[in-house]
Amino acid sequence: MTPTFAGQLINLLAALLLLIAFAMLSQRRVLSLIYLFAWQGFVLVLSTTLVAYSTGQHHLYYSAALTLILKVFALPWILHRLIIRLNIKWDVETLINIPTTMLLGIVLVIFAFNLALPISQLASTVTKNTLGIAMACVLLAFLMMITRRKAVPQVIGFLAIENGLFFAATSATYGMPMVVEFGVALDVLVGTFIFGIFFFQIRETFDSLDIHHLEKLKED
């Protein structure tokens, strides 16, 4: 595999990541959202492996393996269990105004691309062009969190932000130091557990996972 071809493949995977980010933005079903999240993790694994292979950065293999275990299998499995236990497997969220959200998403992408342009001109990695996409993924996941009303999709949005950041680290500087990565992975895992516990508590209290009930907690 020539380096340019590997670069093109990485670009293709980056584009796929962006596409999945948009798909998550417009996905109504909770279950499909989890699958999309898993797929995003999988694409991330592929691209990290590819970067590791084409640049000879061996520590990236480890982070790819970590991503595979954590984000493709463990977290989706936990989330899946969670929605079965919460009995919201077939939940459909009513999303208002998908076209407006999509247009906003496009504007965010343009913003992210322009933001990354000067940085990627400085960087010397083969993946420098994908930095814009990584930032776009982060922003889109953020937008997804803003537009959702149910708790589980919000958590998925949060995890997707982490995916975007991870990809940004890979594309800008060939990944973070292993210690940091392990730390982040642990944080995410623990975070998901805590969120799970919170879900049960929220539902106990309000009989629903709709987070606008949390507004009632405000002291007047």
Partner: peptide, 12 residues
């Protein structure tokens, strides 16, 4: 649109 933007940002 994404295709076009990716063309502009990635494939220079």
């Amino acid at each position: 649109v994404l295709g076009m933007l990716i063309r502009l940002a990635l494939e220079k």
